[in-house]
Amino acid sequence: MKADAVMTPVSHATESPKWQRFTLGQRSARYMVYLIIVMSFFASLRTVEIIPEFLLDAPEQLADMFRRMWPMDFAAYPTTIHGAMLDTLHIATLGTLLSLILAVPLALMNANNIVKSSLVNWIAKFFLVASRSVNSLIWALLFVAIFGPGVLAGVLAVALRSVGFVGKLFSEALEEVNMGSVEAIRATGASFTSVLIKAYWPQAKPAFFSILLFRWDINVRESAVLGLVGAGGIGVVLNDAMNLFQWPKVAMVLTTIFAVVLLIEFIVVQVRKRLM
């Protein structure tokens, strides 16, 4: 878009220079990208197996669902939902804390200004990418198969999914550290641990807590759905209510999740304001 805004060709008679922001190669590369996107969009649209009639009565179906949901089942909150929601919060918090056991060493190994060996950097990067590319629901499926349904599977799923995220961002924060103070502390003859604690840590500390809070916020959202595959928390209640077509209870669960997510976001914003 930007390219053709300045591309007006000028007649040769006036002999004024023709200004262009991008070279021909750049422009054609961009148009290729646009073309491929449009083509793959239409190709997918033509071949995807959907039944258009279903889309037409979607508003009706949605209205029907909301009508069944109302009035919400407030009575279910104290008996089942409250305890399950607390479990979900525990899963998110414990999972976030547990992820640090792996995330911090991997972040140190991944930061190329701490560990100079590119082999070690590469190994750490491999584990971080592997942790990130598997969705937390899929981690949960694996851990449910190993440890059986329950909270333990949820905590481990959240933890392993968070390792990649926290580790990557923390190692980026470590790489941005000002090396002056690191050299100064090294020059006093300090050991590796002292350099880590006194030179790297104070500079990376705000980023570290900010990353941790950010991930905690995401984990609360994610742990709310882990129960759908049996990994404990509010998702189990949601799944049961849906399988039994108890729509008023489903509505109550969704409202609870909504309220908790908003509350968590508010807390995170407040804490981050103090931290910065």
Partner: peptide, 9 residues
């Protein structure tokens, strides 16, 4: 899924 049924849509 409730609104438009199972599937890609």
């Amino acid at each position: 899924v409730k609104a438009v049924g199972f599937g890609a849509l």
